[in-house]
Design a protein around this nucleic acid. Structure first.
Length: 509
RNA sequence: GCUGCCAUCGUCUAGUUGGUUAGGACACCGGCCUUUCACGUCGGCAACGCGGGUUCGAGUCCCGCUGGCAGUACCA
C-alpha cells in the first residue's frame, strides 16, 4: 500500500442510523486509523424524495457519541468537497455523457409506468423477474433502438429520460473482496442499471463511483447488501478508465431470534434499542429508543459492536477505542452474519460500569436523581454508587434501592413473615443501644460492634441481621449492612429503627 | 424464480501451512464465598448441517446436497 489509506462512510439521510450502520462506520474508522489514514463522512442524499430532516445531524451526533471523528465531512470539509452528493449534483452528468460517448451507456425514454407494466406482465406470465438488460433493451425505447434523429428530437423536446449502463454480453467480472476472496459474476446477470435519473440526479451506482474516485478512496468497506451490485461498480471503474479501490463487504447483523437482517421492529419487539441515540420521527412523532438514553456507555457500546463480527484471535474481550484501532484488521472479520445478542450487550455495559470510579458514576447518576426529585450530596451519592456498582448493569440500576435516599415506607412482606420473630424487637432494641454508643460511625466500627453484640449474646448472624436490615432498608437483601449503616449515619439509622419498629409491631398485631 | 454470499455449542466466536480431550465468552444449571442478594470463584450442560471424495489422518482441502441470508427500483 503505497497510497495513503482513505475510506469513507456514506450513509443516506433517510432516518436514524441503526447499529449495523454504526458498525460499518466503526470498521471503516478502525481500518483507517490502524493504517494512519483518513476517514471521511459523505452524505448520499441523491434521492430527494426520501430526505428526512434531522437525519444528517443524527448521523453526525451518533458518530460523535461513539468517539468516531471524520477527518473530512460536511462539518469539516477537506480538499474533496462538497461532502453532500446533492451539492455535487452538477459533477456527475459529464461522466454519464462520457460513458455514452464511449458506448458504455445509453439514453432510455421508457416511463416508470411503462416499466411497471412490463414487469407486471412478466409476473403474470410467471416469467422470472423482469430486468432491463442486454436482451430486453432491444424491445424498449432507448437510444439503441430509436433512430439518432428521434433521440435528438426527444431530448430537444425536453422528454424525460434516464441514462443506463450498457452491460456487456457474456463477460466474466471478477473482484477480489478483502473479506470474501474472489467473487465472479457473468455480465449476463447484470442489468442495465440507471446511472442518471430523470431528475438529473445520479443514482447511487454512478455517484459512489465518481465520488470515491474524486475523493481518492482506497478501500470501500460497506455492508454485504452491496455485494450483488459490486460487479456493476467494477464495470463502471473499468469503463471510466479509473483504478478501482479494494472492496470489503461486511457481514450483516441479524435479528436475535429467527433469521434476517436486524430491523427497527425487532428492537421494539424484543425490548432493546437498535439505534445509538434516541430518535423522534419528525413526521409520525414516533420515538425509538437509543443506547445512549438507555444508559449504555459509549465505549462499552463500541466495544460490543466491534465484537459483532470481529475478534482479536485470542480471549481478550474488553477493548478501548484506541486498543481496537491498534488491533483491528479486516482479515479477522468473519464472513457469516452475526445475530445480535442483547444479553452480551448488557454484560459489556456491566463490565464498563464497574470499571468506572464512584465519582464518575455519581455524575452519571445525578440526572436520574434530579428526575426523581431526590436531593443528595455528591459525597453521599458516590458512596452509594460504590456500594451499588457491583449489582448494576446500567446507571439507573443503582437507583433501584431507594432506601439510601429516603426511609422505607414499606417493609418486604416475605422477609417480615419469615424473619421477624417474637424476640426480634427486643434483640434489635438492644442492638440499637450498642450502635448508639459508637462515636465514629464507620463501617469498620459498626462491624466490630455488631460482631461483639452477637458474641456477647450468643446470637448467630441470621438471628439479628435480617431484622436490622428490614428496619433500616425495608428489604430482605442487599449490600453489607455495616456499609449501608455507615453511609446513612448514626442518627438516621437509629431513627429508622425506631419508626420501623413501631410500624412492624403494628403490622404483626 | 434468477444471481451472489454464507454454514463450529442456544448466541458471539477461536481453530488461517490438514494430526486439538474442538478452546474462550454470554446465557443457563450446580458447588464454594456471603446474614441475604449481587460480585467473585470452581465446576457442569452444550457445536463442527448432510453425503461423497483426496489423505495414513479432514472442523480444516475438493465436489454435491440441504439450509439460511442478501440482491433482484428512475432507493440507498
Amino acid at each position: 500500500m503505497s497510497q495513503k489509506v482513505r475510506v469513507r462512510f456514506a450513509p443516506s439521510p433517510t432516518g436514524p442510523l441503526h447499529i449495523g450502520g454504526v458498525r460499518t462506520a466503526l470498521y471503516n474508522y478502525l481500518f483507517a486509523k490502524h493504517h494512519g489514514g483518513d476517514f471521511l463522512l459523505r452524505i448520499e442524499d441523491t434521492d430527494q424524495t426520501r430526505f428526512v430532516p434531522g437525519a444528517e445531524e443524527y448521523i453526525q451526533q451518533s458518530l460523535s457519541w461513539c468517539g468516531i471523528t471524520p477527518d473530512e465531512g460536511p462539518q469539516n470539509p477537506g480538499n474533496c468537497g462538497p461532502y453532500r452528493q446533492s451539492e455535487r449534483k452538477d459533477l456527475y452528468y459529464q461522466y454519464a455523457e462520457q460513458l455514452i460517448n464511449d458506448g458504455y451507456a445509453y439514453y432510455a425514454f421508457d416511463t416508470p409506468e411503462e416499466l411497471e407494466n412490463v414487469r407486471e406482465m412478466a409476473k403474470k406470465m410467471k416469467a422470472p423477474n423482469w430486468q432491463y438488460n442486454q436482451i430486453t433493451r432491444t424491445g424498449m425505447k432507448n437510444s439503441l433502438t430509436l433512430t439518432k434523429e428521434e433521440v435528438e428530437a426527444r431530448i430537444n423536446n425536453g422528454d424525460p429520460y434516464v441514462i443506463r449502463l450498457k452491460a456487456p454480453r457474456n463477460e466474466e467480472i471478477r473482484l477480489n473482496d478483502l473479506i470474501r476472496g474472489w467473487v465472479v459474476v457473468n455480465s449476463n446477470n447484470i442489468d442495465d442499471k440507471v446511472l442518471m435519473k430523470a431528475d438529473k440526479m445520479p443514482t447511487y451506482h454512478l455517484a459512489n463511483i465518481v465520488d470515491d474516485h474524486l475523493m481518492d478512496i482506497t478501500h470501500v468497506i460497506r455492508g454485504e447488501e452491496w455485494l450483488p451490485s459490486a460487479p456493476t461498480h467494477v464495470l463502471l471503474y473499468q469503463y471510466l478508465g479509473w483504478n478501482q479501490p479494494d472492496f470489503a463487504h461486511l457481514p450483516l447483523i441479524l435479528k436475535p431470534d429467527g433469521n434476517g437482517k436486524l430491523s427497527k421492529r425487532d428492537g421494539d419487539r424484543l425490548g432493546f434499542p437498535v439505534f445509538p441515540l434516541e430518535w423522534k420521527d419528525p413526521k409520525t412523532h414516533e420515538v425509538s429508543s437509543g443506547y445512549r438514553e438507555s444508559g449504555y456507555f459509549a465505549d462499552g457500546f463500541v466495544n460490543m459492536l466491534a465484537f459483532l463480527g470481529w475478534n482479536p484471535g485470542d480471549d481478550r474481550e474488553i477493548f478501548s477505542l484506541e486498543e481496537l484501532i491498534s488491533e483491528f484488521s479486516l482479515e479477522r472479520v468473519g464472513k457469516a452474519g452475526a445475530k445480535f445478542d442483547a444479553d452480551k450487550a448488557k454484560w459489556y455495559n456491566q463490565q464498563y460500569l464497574r470499571s468506572r470510579s464512584n465519582e464518575e458514576l455519581e455524575e452519571l447518576l445525578r440526572p436520574y436523581l434530579e428526575a426523581e426529585g431526590i436531593q443528595s450530596s455528591k459525597g453521599f451519592t458516590s458512596r452509594v454508587c460504590g456500594l451499588m456498582k457491583e449489582r448494576a448493569s446500567f446507571i439507573p440500576d443503582m437507583l433501584n434501592d431507594r432506601f439510601y435516599f429516603e426511609a422505607p415506607t414499606s417493609y418486604d412482606e416475605k422477609t417480615v413473615r419469615k424473619k421477624w420473630k417474637e424476640d426480634t424487637p427486643e434483640i434489635v432494641k438492644n442492638l440499637r443501644g450498642k450502635l448508639e454508643g459508637i462515636s465514629d460511625f464507620s463501617e469498620e466500627n459498626i462491624d466490630v460492634t455488631f460482631k461483639k453484640f452477637l458474641e456477647d449474646n450468643g446470637y448467630g448472624f441470621g438471628k439479628v441481621m435480617p431484622g436490622f436490615r428490614l428496619l433500616v432498608t425495608g428489604k430482605g437483601m442487599g449490600p453489607s449492612m455495616s456499609a449501608i449503616a455507615s453511609i446513612l449515619g448514626k442518627e438516621e439509622v437509629l431513627k429508622r429503627i425506631d419508626t420501623g419498629l413501631a410500624v412492624i409491631e403494628q403490622l404483626a398485631s
